[in-house]
Design a protein around this nucleic acid. Structure first.
Lengths: 340, 340
DNA sequence: TTGAAAGCGGTACCAG
DNA sequence: CTGGTACCGCTTTCAA
């Protein structure tokens, strides 16, 4: 398109200045006289001058773009995270480049290549369920590309992390189930590679151990694709209900798994919570409208997106390389409803 | 960051060629000997050469970026649209720049400035509820920036449109309510500025008229912010229930309004569908889990995103200016559940 | 068929 | 304080 935007040269010509002067005046460099500075700025303002970002990028090797790596945009949790990311990016004049990998390692790698090719200034990353090897990120990290991990993180790479208190959230939910008197509390969780899986299991186990419960490993079921494939959830549930002593309560460890399980349980005609209670991690908009209203562990996804983006932009704009990395942990909220 | 990417010059130096030759060889220009072409291509391949996009952009005035203008990312409908957009953009090597305006005209304008400043190659647009005047888009359109409108479109600007069969969807849902025997069918709809509002009302009215029903205007309630503000829905509902003859059925015209109304109705203790039936436009993931399961008009949001993006990229890459504009209309799906 | 060089729109270094 | 100029990496015209 022909934006017909005014350029530095145009200003220089109009004002009879060299364009290096104009450039400096515009960024308020102290070596320029007040008078010229004002002159230039006013002219620029009046003519709606905006620096050409492509030129700036080329020169500075900075694009003012942030790359986002995640599994699925329409997933409620991530959609809210993105919204948080956008809110900060907007206010700091960064633009987002969002990629989704649908839980495929291969696509994660390919998306990453695209993003770096685009020379993003930094990366916000939540790993795919298939991702065990993080060397593709490691390589970029070694080259000095700022990155912040959120939600599904890795400790293999020293970087800022923003996560939910997964241990606490799962612990709290499991305790709640114990207190309600449920005896055999099973859990359906995501891929064992994921940090969130490990942490949520830890919370779950902690609550059970504290209560002196010892449950067979069979009460823990994994979905290698995080419930992306509905059959995974189906067979997980099937395995649980097949047990000689089937569970009387279920903790589901992610949005997709929660909805999927709930739906399948209903379809099987099991009564919730009488035959099986359900509590789950979920950022679904309206769990109170469910039948029965669903007990959820809610994460502050919007805040997570905001925090991660703030950390990232700080790092991108920091003069000296960042070497101390923060790990922000956001609290979860257990909302008890009648499914438990 | 230091991507340490190999450049044209590097190749030229290594191969003892001028870099114009290398450039031409790489894009398979016919004026280059087979031999050199092969040589260059192989070397480039082997060394993972990728052209610097910032340089290319600067030179070609093309960024391979698509700007997306919409109201809210976490809104289910739009999240699905974005997913569709991403799927095409990914396959054609375009990147997305997504902005959300939270139904604010002012923010829509500011986002647009950002996008054009970024020199996106094209725009995918769904208007905010506040947008009555589209001159900010018109101006860009006049400058030749390709744009495709989806969902909330305007006829003031000649451009491709991808929409849902809103008339048909609302008509079908309203007919369904009539056939079920409901007498006073009210509707809560979005901002009167929006194309979707007008069309859905048209379908609603058509069904009523065909059935020989004449309803007072009071049975139509608007939410100027599309339900972004919950109070809007509250007062709309309040107005309806206050009527001397309150409605016995309700058609809600958007995702947010549907969920909001459902929730409020429940909170008021009204029985659905006995005291009031509800059917609504919604791309919510699991309306079958609701209590009672919700009758919905579902749109093919993913497909909408895909189609719009295909149209846009075709236009962006077309050699000659496009002058014939398509209007793609996607079918809706009425899924009857027990709320009606 | 290939090479040299201008230029896209900035930034920043070096002189003056 | 200001001007001149090289350069970021690539495309493209003009000459050879």
């Amino acid at each position: 398109m022909k934006t017909d935007n005014i350029t530095l040269k145009d200003i220089a010509k109009a004002l009879n200045l060299s364009y290096s002067t104009v450039s400096r005046a515009l960024k308020g460099s102290y070596k320029i006289s007040e008078a010229t500075q004002l002159l230039v700025k006013e002219y620029a303002e009046a003519h709606h001058y905006r620096p050409n970002l492509m030129a700036q990028s080329l020169k500075n090797q900075k694009s003012r773009c942030i790359g986002v790596v995640l599994c699925s945009i329409p997933n409620n949790f991530f959609a809210e995270v993105i919204s948080g990311i956008e809110s900060i990016a907007y206010s700091k004049d960064y633009l987002l480049i969002i990629t989704q990998n649908l839980e495929s390692y291969e696509r994660e790698v390919k998306n990453l290549q695209n993003l770096t090719w685009r020379s993003v200034d930094g990366l916000l990353i939540s790993l795919s369920t298939e991702t065990e090897d993080v060397s593709h990120f490691q390589k970029l990290h070694d080259q000095g590309l700022p990155m912040v991990f959120f939600d599904r993180v890795t400790n293999a790479i020293p970087a800022h992390q923003v996560i939910t208190d997964n241990i606490g959230g799962a612990y709290q939910a499991t305790r709640h189930l114990i207190e309600r008197g449920y005896k055999r509390i099973a859990t359906i969780t995501s891929s064992p590679f994921l940090s969130i899986t490990r942490e949520r299991l830890e919370g779950y186990n902690k609550a059970l151990t504290e209560a002196g419960r010892h449950l067979h490993g069979e009460y823990i079921q994994y979905c290698p694709h995080g419930g992306m494939i509905i059959g995974e959830i189906e067979s997980a549930l099937h395995n649980l209900l097949q047990l000689p002593e089937p569970p009387d309560a279920l903790l589901t460890a992610s949005d997709r798994i929660t909805i999927g399980s709930y739906s399948l349980i209903q379809r099987k005609g099991l009564l919730i919570p009488d035959e099986i209670a359900v509590a789950g991690f979920s950022n679904f908009n309206a769990p109170e409208l469910f039948n029965p209203p669903l007990t959820t562990v809610r994460q502050n996804a919007f805040e997570m997106g905001k925090l991660a983006t703030e950390l990232l932009i700080d790092q991108v704009e920091s003069k000296r390389p960042v070497s101390v990395f923060e790990k922000k942990v956001l609290p979860t909220e257990l909302i008890v409803r009648s499914s438990t």
